[in-house]
Amino acid sequence: MHLDVVRLRDFYASRLGAATARLVGARIREMWPRVTGFAVLGLGYATPYLDLFMDDRPERVINISPAAQGVHPWTPDSARGNLSALARETLLPLADESIDRVLMVHVLETAEETRAMLREVWRVLRPGGRILTVVPNRTGPWTISDRTPFGHGQPFSRGQLETLLRDHMFTPASRKYTLFSPPRAGIRTLRATEQPGRKLWPGLGGVLLMEAEKRIYASNGLIPSRAKLHRLPVVTRKTTSPAAQSSLRRTKRP
């Protein structure tokens, strides 16, 4: 079940939410230092992090929130207007191969139709396109508290997330962790443990970020509907007499 957009907005408006956005955003920026000329899609509640890319002169930056989550306007500047929309994450209103980068935040861990959503993401990505998933780390300290959005939904271990992405036609490329102290420890402790945590116990971060590339040599996994299936007649030897078989051989000769 998706988190309500009001709860997400209120969290990121708090001091803890602002500190979270800075720390997670720093890891995102390390993985995607520039998106100049790229079409960037934020899927879920990615607006606190999409601001990082606005000065890179991207082709475009938009955010799509799941229908069950809700949406509020996102206007990074008055010239561009609102860049946020509401849609089903399993039916994105985007053309095939129209996006270069997809940032997924607060969506994968709560998705009810993970396969259909990832298949849609694969469809809209251009060849060589990449996704960056931001999810709760199963072994991290943020999954045990529902004080933050990262305490909701299904957390992932590194292996689970890699398997999920590979099964849906993506190749994991890199990963990072962040948020090494529990959210109740306070903002100062959260900041103080960031550098030691990344060096000493990286797998214990509260949030796991994983980048993956679209596998263009894979099939899209689509299964045709019953209405589109064409059944071919089958002739078995048991029901074909010797005379009929001889007639059939004669008709096949050039």
Rank of each mutant, 00 (worst) to 15 (best):
G159K: 05
L91R: 15
A185F: 15
E30T: 00
R175Q: 09
Y177K: 03
R34P: 00
S219V: 07
L229G: 08
P182F: 09
P202R: 13
T163A: 15
V61E: 02
L16S: 13
A95C: 04
T139I: 14
T193P: 00
L86T: 09
S225F: 11
T36Y: 00
H106Y: 03
V235P: 02
R237N: 12
A243N: 09
D4A: 05
K214V: 08
D167G: 13
L209R: 09
T36A: 14
L92A: 04
Y45V: 01
W201A: 13
W142D: 03
S98W: 02
A111N: 02
P196L: 14
V5M: 02
T251N: 00
V135H: 02
P183D: 02
D55R: 07
L232Q: 13
S247R: 11
S157D: 10
W74E: 01
P73W: 01
L179V: 01
A21K: 13
H168V: 04
P76N: 09
I62G: 05
K238G: 15
P172C: 03
W201Y: 14
A26L: 13
R27A: 12
R60K: 15
L222D: 07
M210C: 06
I144Y: 13
G42S: 06
H72E: 14
V121L: 03
G206I: 06
F156A: 01
P48H: 12
D100A: 07
A67G: 08
G205T: 06
N82W: 12
L165G: 06
R249F: 12
E59D: 14
T90P: 00
A87G: 14
F150G: 04
L52N: 05
F156L: 05
R237C: 05
A244G: 00
N220H: 15
F150W: 15
L41C: 07
T75P: 00
M1V: 10
R22N: 13
V24R: 05
F150N: 02
L41F: 02
R7F: 11
L16Y: 00
M210G: 03
D51A: 07
L16W: 04
R57Q: 12
K228R: 15
R123H: 10
T114V: 15
R198I: 15
R158K: 12
K199L: 15
D77W: 10
G37N: 07
T240K: 11
G70N: 06
T20Q: 10
P254C: 00
T36H: 08
T143Y: 08
F170L: 11
G128C: 08
D167C: 05
G81S: 02
S157F: 07
F170Y: 06
V5T: 11
W122H: 13
